[in-house]
Design a binder for these strands. Structure first.
Lengths: 152, 152
DNA sequence: AAATTTATTTCGAACATCGAAATATTCGAT
DNA sequence: ATCGAATATTTCGATGTTCGAAATAAATTT
């Protein structure tokens, strides 16, 4: 690395640290100011994990949310009570519970999606002709790197 | 946006969502596998907020961590008991408690720093001549965007 | 059809966070 | 200088989240 690249790297690293330290609570804060004051960021991510029109089983959710099944049950209980999700027994295998979004749940899903699109636009919109692929590749590399980390 | 840019945008947005959904628990998981099994990701971020060689007051920390002062007290209690931080009364104003890192705490600080550097390298290392500034600008824009969001 | 496995829930314990009150100290107005 | 208000932190009790173990219910294997 040249001295200049070094500098560029340091600056970017700082920005990245700042971004990662803050996204979570910023989304939480914007949630509190929205009309969905009764859910947490974790609830919102659960809703995002359920997907818009499909359903997920309780165990699928507990895996993607990195929660124990019993903790998942209580998250779902809470969201069901508040009207964001519905439980239905799978007709094929009656042990499994399928979780789907209600209309209200889908509204939250869209809000989460919009939040992410806002971020993606901030990365993207000021790029010049031909620069998009550079950023796309960089972000893809970061994604791959994180995935590699989990295969220890 | 051209159809191709649209595509590029969607792809990047997806990667971003994936990255943000996962960084937290990936760092938590790598922490669990390290020799610091007795602290959480929140503890680690508290340690990062204290800074390497300087000190922070309890209230400064409660602000940057978005915790109430009372919650901050108990986080600090826990970290002090485990030997990551030390409390000292400010000699000028004896109401304030200054929190600093112990040697053990600094080791955690460096681990956190290394984790972030790893991510920054993954973004940076495969870039060609002249592409670094593009990514640097994009990340800077994202950072600014998030900061704007909090001034509602 | 009995034993085993799988999906989920219930329960009790541990821990985190909060808000209100308590404590200690400093600052400001008289 | 002293009293009252303001500030920094801690303590306490209540609430909520997460966990692990045991319970329940349904499917699969033997």
């Amino acid at each position: 690395m040249t001295a200049h690249e070094e500098d560029s790297f340091e600056k970017m690293n700082e920005s990245l640290v700042d971004v990662f330290n803050n996204v979570m609570w910023i989304e939480e804060a914007s949630l509190r100011k929205s009309r969905f004051k009764d859910i947490s960021i974790k609830d919102m991510h659960t809703i995002a994990a359920i997907t818009m029109y499909d359903t997920r089983t309780a165990s699928q959710l507990s895996q993607t949310m990195h929660l124990t099944p019993s903790a998942m049950t209580s998250v779902i209980d809470k969201l069901e009570k508040k009207g964001y999700v519905v439980r239905t027994r799978d007709s094929k295998d009656r042990r499994v519970v399928r979780i789907g979004l209600t209309h209200k749940g889908r509204t939250v899903f869209r809000a989460h999606e919009a939040f992410h699109r806002g971020m993606a636009h901030s990365l993207f919109d000021s790029l010049e002709e031909g620069e998009a692929p550079v950023v796309e590749k960089a972000v893809g590399d970061l994604q791959d790197y994180l995935h590699e980390l989990i295969q220890f």
